[in-house]
């Protein structure tokens, strides 16, 4: 009979792949399950310029492909797409279900990351993929010479605005406050760009269009005034929410749904660890996810060896 996995990692972004690299290098039998595409949100980032060791920046997909290659070199087994649907506790062991197949393991590392938040306005769902997008690097090139709206004011929103200026004719940033939250260096770049305009103190009420986006109703929060803005596409960057639905109420979560752990990355259930954007950490960055992935892997090793309760 095949030996059961020491560790199963759920999620193949920076945290999951790094945990896999460390676990496989520690000679633990390790399987990584990725529900969609390896690389996670990082693989949809055009240019990563704050990950140490790459002074000229590196593309998100290339960085993730390199980490994947490094993890596989040490023997990490990867299954994708394999969407985990539940985790059950079977005495000392854990069992992950993926569409009817059950994978037992001695320890589990959850690194399922986060996904873009939706606006939750009429027209958004109907027009997703028809002009409503949550990923400029995925869809931006399809909007050459078009007029776009970008919703949000943080780092991710401004990075995407700068990326979209390569394709779009003009971009209006719709932000609910009267100043940006994004890093100063990004603010300087967007304010300097003549293609970019701003609609302050405003929110989207409704997205208009039949077979594709044609416009949006925007409301000024201070004056209460509502107006229609014509646009060809709407890119939404208003933050993220954790991918924890498959956990049910198994683990302790914080108020926003992120997984609570101790400093060893151990969750409220011994033997289950969490790392990266899915965890209640204060900074959602590749460099943070990588560090947490490494910590989770070594903690899981200690747990399996009986040194961590």
């Amino acid at each position: 009979m095949e030996r059961i996995n020491d560790i199963i990692i759920v999620g193949g972004g920076p945290a999951g792949l790094t945990a896999g690299l460390y676990a496989a290098r520690a000679r633990l039998k390790t399987l990584l399950l990725e529900g969609e595409v390896l690389g996670g949100q990082a693989a949809t980032t055009e240019l990563v310029e704050n990950y140490p060791g790459f002074p000229d920046g590196i593309s998100g997909p290339e960085l993730m492909e390199r980490i994947e290659r490094q993890a596989r070199f040490f023997g990490l087994e990867i299954s994708a797409p394999s969407m985990a649907t539940s985790i059950k506790i079977k005495g000392e062991a854990k069992e992950i279900a993926v569409e009817g197949t059950k994978y037992p393991a001695k320890a589990v590392i959850i690194a399922t990351g986060a996904r873009p938040k939706k606006l939750n306005v009429p027209g958004e769902r109907e027009l997703q993929g028809r002009g409503v997008s949550y990923c400029a690097t995925c869809d931006g090139a399809l909007f050459k010479g078009k007029k776009l709206l970008v919703i949000g004011g943080g780092d991710a929103a401004m990075e995407e605005v700068l990326f979209l200026t390569k394709f779009a004719r003009s971009i209006l940033v719709v932000h609910r406050r009267d100043e940006l939250r994004a890093a100063k260096i990004l603010q300087e770049r967007v304010f300097d760009n003549k293609k970019v305009g701003f609609v302050w103190d405003s929110q989207i009420l409704r997205i208009l269009g039949e077979s594709r986006v044609e416009g949006a109703i925007v409301r000024n929060k201070k004056s209460g005034e509502e107006r229609e803005i014509k646009t060809d596409g709407i890119f939404v960057y208003i933050g993220t929410e954790p991918n924890t639905t498959f956990l049910g109420n198994l683990l302790k979560l914080d108020r926003e749904g992120y997984i609570v752990t101790d400093e060893n990355m151990m969750t409220s259930i011994p033997g289950i660890f969490a790392a990266g954007d899915v965890r209640c950490n204060p900074l959602k960055q590749i460099s943070v996810a990588v560090g947490e992935g490494a910590t989770a892997a070594i903690s899981a090793q200690k747990y399996i060896e009986g040194h961590l309760k």
Binding site: G129, S133, K144, R212, G233
Partner: peptide, 16 residues
């Protein structure tokens, strides 16, 4: 879609 933009536009391809 990069090599055949006209066809992509004609068929309203806004996400891939």
């Amino acid at each position: 879609v990069d090599d055949n933009q006209e066809i992509a536009v004609k068929h309203n391809i806004l996400s891939i």
